[in-house]
Design a protein around this nucleic acid. Structure first.
Length: 567
RNA sequence: GCGCCUGUAGCUCAACGGGAUAGAGUAUCGGCCUUCUAAGCCGAGGGUUGAAGGUUCGAGUCCUUCCAGGCGCGCCA
């Protein structure tokens, strides 16, 4: 249940009744504990507009509101804040619900375009943020009940593939070099440059491919399959929920491109400029105020990524019935997406009611503020990154103790290694550049994935010590002291946090939530005995622990991070 | 030149349609393990939110100018 929304609705009605106009209640979690659990900030804004006393207005709103069974205490503070304290019965009732997450009332069809690597190159750190953040958003929207269409818009078409396939043919189908695609690519380009016969064959292959010659298509497909399996292996290592069903690459739109250009022409948007076909929109200007074109067809007849993106957009609208389409790419593509969305709407390829959202993110930097690369200046392949995380996590888990068996040891290492990489990224506001630092993400202190995983493991340990199961444990939660209550309140805020993440495509809100939840749990756990508590307290506290474990597990699952029962 | 993004504690980061005294972690210093995992908990110090104006009862958040860094601006994606 979304408590924040519930309060906002109830107070919103009262605001409307009192002011006779639509005035938002502006409910948010209280900024300080002494202000209660939630606060409503709407009174000041409306009072200003209506030129009345905000404190008086706040009082009237509280008087007119129906908060029975929800709020135990209201207080008007400062210039007109309404501070709300939830009632014990409401907490108890909310936490007694079996469902942790309620499905949103309006189920939307949501397309999420993320990861989208180019298959001519190996997956590297440049793909990390899009893949991780997009995946967390997809999982979150899905758990909220939306119909999520993951779209992996891979680069699987174009001249590099001519070179690669020709080289693959030459080397034999089973070439293991493809595991390191960049190396393979480098070898292929070298041949391309130095061997005219090879270059000729590669060029001919591209022509054959584009004209749809069967043999060429078959070999191209074989290459794509090899490269895709490599990509898929990395997704599995990283616990990314993308699978081949989600792949719809550039090549999938080849047959639509001519039609896109024709339709743009029919919509009266197409211009010919220096032999290229393009769309000029008056809101976009470039150097010296000259109109900025969006090129959709080159003078040699070839199409561009704008064209493909328009075709994809149309597919997502027409076939997938998208209500929202989200793109997770780095900020440099900002102009491209602004133009793309403007053209899509101007041409009516996509109706204005379909929300088109670019969710950009900053660069990946090293601790010196430079782009994150390996020592020799080359980009870091993701499988190397994962391997290093495993090695580092293995060393740490080994040093920590453990009577873990081999299998459990491996499981813990994996959860920690992958969790560390993902959480470090996900916990930051994606708009900013992000400093990648092994030591801080694997320090396991403070706001890191292992801290959350550790809390989960402690709870599991508690339940196994009591011969109980955290999954099935049921009892009323009746918070008696401050630490119990603080934990209970935080548990009640899970739904509103998920909805916030879904709305904004910003998983760091969920990380902040889970971290706060965990610190509150740790404080509670430090001060309140559970198994040895008197029967009445024991039940309620066990239920608090069980609910915390379930929330942690579900929350981390939304982030694509695993929990472990021991560590 | 035009446009977009970023600037918060030594470091890494929060602050959700403007809200109350700008919060965490880390590092530093000081406490807490015969008792449910110390990968933990408690406490201390640490800030002119890049700068200056403005709007407002109220500005890290909005507006203007400036400074610094990054990125983008026609046939790659």
């Amino acid at each position: 249940m979304n408590v924040r929304q519930l309060l906002d609705d109830r107070l919103g009605e009262a605001f409307e009744q009192v002011t006779k106009e639509c005035a938002p209640a502006l409910v948010s979690p209280a900024s300080r504990p002494e202000y209660g659990d939630y606060q409503a900030n709407g009174a000041m804004a409306v009072a200003k507009r209506l030129k009345t006393n905000p404190r008086k207005l706040a009082e009237d709103v509280v008087g007119a509101s129906d908060l029975t069974g929800i709020v135990a205490e209201t207080e008007i503070a400062g210039p007109g804040f309404i501070n709300l304290t939830l009632s014990q019965e409401f907490l108890k009732g909310t936490l007694a619900r079996a469902d942790l997450v309620t499905k949103v009332p309006r189920r939307e069809s949501i397309v999420i375009d993320y990861s989208s690597p180019n298959l001519a190159k190996t997956l590297h750190v440049g793909h990390l943020r899009s893949t991780i953040i997009g995946d967390a958003t997809a999982r979150t929207l899905e758990i909220l009940g939306h119909n999520v269409w993951r779209q992996n818009h891979i680069g699987d078409w174009g001249t590099p593939f001519g070179m690669l396939v020709t080289y693959l043919d030459e080397q034999g189908q089973s070439s293991d070099d493809l595991g390191n695609l960049d190396h393979f690519y480098a070898l292929a380009s070298e041949r391309f440059e130095k061997d005219p016969t090879f270059a000729k064959a590669a060029r001919k292959f591209v022509v054959d491919l584009q004209s749809g010659k069967e043999g060429a298509i078959t070999r191209w497909k074989q290459f794509i399959e090899l490269s895709t399996s490599h990509m898929q292996r990395i997704y599995e290592q990283l616990n990314i929920s993308l699978n081949p069903d989600h792949t719809r690459g550039e090549s999938a739109y080849n047959n639509d491109l001519a039609q896109v250009v024709t339709d743009l022409d029919e919509a009266g948007l197409l211009s010919l400029s220096d032999g290229a076909k393009c769309v000029f929109l008056k809101e976009f200007t470039g150097k010296e105020g000259k109109p900025l074109p969006m090129l959709v067809q080159k003078s040699d007849g070839g199409y561009l990524y704008h064209t493909t993106d328009l075709a994809a957009l149309r597919y997502r609208h027409k076939v997938l019935n998208a209500d929202r389409i989200l793109y997770f790419t780095d900020g440099r593509q900002n102009l491209h997406f602004r133009m793309l969305f403007a053209v899509a709407h101007a041409s009516e390829f996509v109706p204005k009611s379909t929300k088109l959202e670019h969710h950009p993110f900053g660069k990946l930097l090293d601790s010196n503020g430079r782009p994150f690369r390996s020592r020799d200046g080359s980009t870091i392949p993701l499988d190397h990154l994962v391997e290093e995380a495993f090695e580092r996590a293995r060393a740490i888990v080994q040093s920590k103790n453990s009577n873990l068996g081999d299998r459990e040891f491996d499981e813990v290492v994996r959860a920690i290694a992958i969790g560390a990489i993902k959480y470090a990224d996900l916990s930051k506001n994606r708009l900013h550049d992000y400093t990648f630092d092994w030591d801080s993400m694997l320090a396991f202190e403070g706001n890191t994935a292992p801290y959350l995983q550790y809390a989960f493991a402690r709870i599991q340990s508690l339940f196994s010590r009591g011969n109980l199961s955290s999954k099935s444990y049921r009892a009323d939660i009746v918070p008696e002291n401050e630490n119990e209550r603080n934990l209970a309140i935080q548990l009640c805020r899970f739904q509103e946090t998920l909805e916030l993440v879904g709305r904004e495509g910003m998983p760091h809100h969920l990380c902040a939530y889970l971290y706060e939840l965990t610190s509150r749990f740790m404080r509670f756990y430090e001060t309140c005995p559970v198994l040895d508590a008197p029967e009445k307290d024991r039940k309620s506290r066990l239920a608090l622990c069980a609910r915390t474990a379930k929330t942690l597990e579900t929350g981390l699952n939304c982030l694509g991070i695993a929990v472990v029962t021991r560590m």
